[in-house]
């Protein structure tokens, strides 16, 4: 067989692969993502009703959502939601919890130190590295401007 031109082949393949159902995926992401955020708002209002100030509520809300995200991952329901919701369940903080629990749980059979604990941050670790890293850089810049 003749040699394949890799670029032509790539273009050819791009022409026949099914395109993602952008519209449907976005609607799902919008609805589920929106609902998770609305629920977050509900929790914020609720804890403020019980006497937390705005700053405390801003800490309490993610803690509660992370618990729920972790819990539903444990029950095996979060990945089923993710199948439809896509970014709608990945982008909220509950998805961050899902990205921590899912590898941790799965590598339990490899032990509690090198399995659970080491794998826990295989996906969430980069988020912390870039999050903390960029906050320090912002801090440095702000310090010199300020």
């Amino acid at each position: 067989m003749k040699n394949i031109n890799q670029k032509d082949y790539k273009d050819y393949v791009d022409g026949i692969v099914p395109k993602p159902t952008y519209f449907k995926n976005c609607i799902w992401a919008f609805i589920i993502g929106g609902l998770i955020c609305t629920f977050g708002q509900f929790i914020t209002e609720l804890v403020m009703k019980y006497g937390l100030n705005k700053k405390e509520a801003a800490t309490a809300t993610p803690i509660i959502l992370i618990f729920l995200g972790a819990f539903f991952t444990g029950l095996g329901l979060y990945d089923r939601l993710g199948k439809f919701a896509g970014a709608g369940s990945i982008v909220p903080i509950t998805g961050f919890a899902n990205s921590i629990v899912s590898p941790a749980m799965e590598f339990k059979r490899e032990g509690y130190v090198l399995g659970v604990a080491a794998r826990m941050f295989s996906i969430a670790g980069p988020v912390l590295v870039y999050g903390f890293g960029s906050s320090v850089i912002v801090g440095i810049i702000y310090y010199f401007i300020y």
């Binding site: 993602p20 991952t73 990945d79 993710g82 998805g95 899902n98 629990v101 799965e106």
Partner: peptide
Amino acid sequence: ERQFRYPLELGNQRALT
């Protein structure tokens, strides 16, 4: 799946391909 792709309980979407 766990060797080549993602943890099973991760809520990701599988591409159509």
